[in-house]
Simulated scan of single mutants.
Amino acid sequence: MGNGSEPRRSWIIRAGAPGSRTTRLELFYDLVFVFAFLSVTTLTASELTPVNLYRFLLVLALLWWSWTGFARLGNAFRADHGVLPLVGFITMAATFLLVLGEPDAFENNPGGLPGPLVFAGCYFVIRMAQLAVFGWVDRSDPVRRRRLLMRAAFPTTATVLLVVAGTVPSRLPQERFAIPLQLSLWTLALLVEYVGGVTLARQWWMVLSAGHWAERHALIVLVALGESIIALGFGKHGLPLTGPVAVSALLGIVVVAALWWAYFDTLSFALEQALHKARDEEARIRITRDV
Rank of each mutant, 00 (worst) to 15 (best):
A45F: 12
L149H: 02
M92E: 05
P240R: 13
A258T: 05
I253K: 09
A120H: 03
A76G: 06
T187N: 06
S39Y: 01
H81Y: 11
L191S: 12
S10P: 12
P169S: 06
G69D: 05
R14I: 08
P85C: 05
A214I: 03
P173T: 04
D104N: 14
A129Y: 06
T187C: 09
Q273F: 10
D80T: 08
L43M: 13
V256Y: 13
W205K: 07
L232W: 02
A105D: 04
V291A: 01
V34D: 00
W213G: 01
A71Q: 10
V133C: 03
L185K: 09
T95A: 02
F37K: 00
S5E: 13
V99L: 04
A79N: 03
W64E: 01
L58W: 11
E215Q: 00
L62Q: 07
Y54F: 14
D280N: 14
L181G: 08
P7D: 03
A152N: 11
V40T: 05
S140H: 15
L53R: 07
G4A: 07
L43P: 02
F28C: 00
N52S: 13
A158K: 10
V221R: 15
G88M: 08
L100Y: 00
L190I: 04
R146F: 12
T266F: 13
L161S: 10
H212L: 03
V254W: 15
V87L: 05
A201Y: 04
P244T: 02
